[in-house]
Write a protein that binds this DNA or RNA. Structure first.
Lengths: 280, 280
DNA sequence: ACAAAAATGGAATAAAAATTCCAATATATA
DNA sequence: TATATATTGGAATTTTTATTCCATTTTTGT
C-alpha cells in the first residue's frame, strides 16, 4: 500500500468497522479481503484469539493481520482487536434488551422471533436426544456396511428427502459413488433397478412412513442388497428390511419436526464411510 | 497454601466455578477472597484483562492472581481466564472445547461416535449463534414480504438445496403456493420465467456461492420481483439483489457445515408466512 | 508469647505474543 | 516487455504478559 494511506478512518465501533470493511472490500488485495471476510464471519475468534491463531485459521501470515489492522487506520492488531472485544462486552446487556423487546406487545416481531426460537429449540433437543438413542457399535456397523459397498443408493422421500439429497452432495464431495433416488417422473424403481449385492442402500423414513421408501427398501432386501436404515422407531417398516438400523427421534414444534439430528447422523455416516475406505 | 491442596476441583464451566468460589469463599485467605469477589462481580474484566490490569483493579499483586487460579486447581491464570472467555463467547463452551479436541490433528483417525458428536456439536453451535445474527424486525419484514406474494419461488442449489427442498414440502403442507426451482435438465431460468412482481423469491446461498443462485436472484430483482435471502455474510452476492436478507453463519466440522440453523430459520419463515396470511 | 505454617508482595525470569523488516513474488503501468 | 509499485511470506526482534521464586509479613495453634 505504498505505506501511508489510511486517511481518516479507524472506526471505533464495530458497526462502523463493518461498514468500512464492506465498502473497501472490493478494492482490497487478496489476503486483506480474505481477512475482512473472516473477521466478519468469526468475530468472536478475532475478539479472543491471538495473532498466530487467527492467522492460521484465516489462512494468512501473522504479519498480514497486523498490516490489515494498520490499513484500516489502527495502531496494530491489538487496537483492532479492542473493537471486537468491546462489541462482545456489550452483547450481554444487548441480549437482555432484546428479550425485553420480545415481550413488548408490538405484535409480529415478537411472534416471528419466538417461532424461530421454537424451531431452534426443537432442533437442539433432537440433537441432545440422539446421544442416547444411537449406539456407537451400530453406527460403526452401519459405516462398515456402507464402506464395503461399491455404490450406495440413497433412498428417502417427502419430509426426509432433504436429508438424502444432502447425502448425495456429501458423498460426491468425498469421492464415494452414490446415487440419489429422486423419483423424478416416478422412476424410483427403475433408478434402483441396477443395484446389486455388492452395493448398499441407505434408506431414511419417519412416521408417517412414505410407502415408496418402505417398498423399495423391502425390494432391495429381497435381492440381498445390504440395507442401512435411519428411522424413528422399532415399529418402522424399514426395520424388517434393514441389516443395520439407527434410531433417531426428532422433536417437533407446532406441526413440523426438526431434521437436525438426522442431518448430523447422515453426515457422520458419510464422512465415516469415506474415512473407512481411505484406511483399507 | 502449604503447597499441595487442590484435591479434585478445577471446574470447566462458569457455573461450576461460581459454585466453587461461593462454597470456598469463607475459608479463603484475605487476598484470595478479595479476588473471588472481584471475579464474580467483574467477569468480563477477567475475561478480557491482563494479569497486571486485573491485579491492579482488584487491589492485589499479579502473583496473587496466579496463586488464585492454582488454588482452584487450574494450571495458571490463563487457564482460569479461558473459563471466563468461554462463557462470554456463548452458552455452549463444552461444545466448542469438544470440537477443538475432535478436530483431527493431522492424519489422526476419528472414530464414528466422535464424528457424530462433532456434527451434533456444530449443529448446536450454529443454532445458538443464530440467536445473535437474526434480528426479529428483519425476520418480520421477510415474513411480510413472503405473505404478500402470490406465489413463492424457492431458489437454492448444491449444498443448500436440501433446505429449499424442505421449504417446498413445508409450504405445500401449509397451503402456501410455492414453486421449487430444482434445475432439472438445467431448466432453472425457465422455471423462474413465470415469476412476476406480485410473486416473491426466497433464495438461499452460502460460500462458496453457487453462481446460478446469485444469477437467478439478480435477474428476479431486475424484474422487480421481491427477493428474500438467507445467506452467510454481508459479502454474499445475494445481498445486492435482496429486499430483505437474513444472516446465518453455520459452524463447520471437518469439511462440512451444518444446515441446522438454516432449517430452523426456513421453517420459521414458512410457518410465519402461513400464519400471516391466515390473519388477513 | 513463641514457633510453625500460611499468605503476601515484589522483583526476576520465562513464555507468549505482537510487531517490524526485508527478501521474494505478484500486479499494474508505460 | 520492461520497470516500477504493491503485496505477500517468513524470520528476527521487541514488547507485553504470565509465571516463578524468595524474602517478609501475617496468621494459627499451643
Amino acid at each position: 500500500m505504498s505505506e501511508a494511506e489510511v486517511t481518516t478512518e479507524a472506526p471505533d465501533s464495530f458497526d462502523g468497522l463493518r461498514a468500512l470493511l464492506l465498502s473497501r472490500h472490493d478494492a482490497m488485495p487478496k489476503r486483506l479481503k480474505q481477512l475482512a471476510t473472516f473477521a466478519l464471519e468469526h468475530p468472536e475468534e478475532v475478539a479472543f484469539g491471538t495473532v498466530a491463531g487467527i492467522a492460521e485459521h484465516a489462512g494468512v501470515q501473522p504479519s498480514t493481520l497486523v498490516r490489515f489492522a494498520k490499513s484500516l487506520g489502527y495502531d496494530g492488531f491489538s487496537h483492532l482487536q479492542q473493537i471486537f472485544r468491546d462489541r462482545l462486552r456489550e452483547r450481554f446487556p444487548d441480549y437482555r434488551e432484546r428479550l425485553k423487546g420480545l415481550r413488548s406487545p408490538e405484535g409480529h416481531h415478537v411472534h416471528a422471533a419466538s417461532l424461530l426460537e421454537g424451531f431452534a429449540g426443537a432442533a437442539a433437543l433432537s440433537l441432545d436426544r440422539m446421544r442416547g438413542s444411537v449406539r456407537p457399535e451400530e453406527l460403526a456397523r452401519a459405516i462398515e456396511t456402507l464402506a464395503k459397498a461399491d455404490t450406495i443408493y440413497l433412498l428417502g422421500a417427502r419430509r426426509v428427502f432433504p436429508v438424502i439429497a444432502y447425502c448425495a452432495y456429501a458423498f460426491g464431495k468425498l469421492g464415494v459413488r452414490a446415487i440419489l433416488i429422486d423419483h423424478v417422473g416416478q422412476l424410483g424403481p427403475e433408478q434402483l433397478a441396477t443395484a446389486a449385492r455388492r452395493d448398499a442402500v441407505l434408506a431414511i423414513s419417519f412416521t408417517p412412513y412414505a410407502p415408496v421408501t418402505a417398498d423399495l427398501a423391502a425390494g432391495a432386501a429381497q435381492r440381498n442388497i445390504p440395507v442401512v436404515a435411519i428411522t424413528d422407531s422399532a415399529f418402522s417398516p424399514l426395520v424388517t428390511s434393514a441389516d443395520v438400523w439407527l434410531e433417531v427421534a426428532e422433536a417437533d414444534f407446532g406441526a413440523f419436526r426438526s431434521l437436525s439430528a438426522s442431518f448430523a447422523l447422515a453426515m457422520a455416516l458419510a464422512v465415516g464411510t469415506a474415512e473407512k475406505r481411505a484406511e483399507g
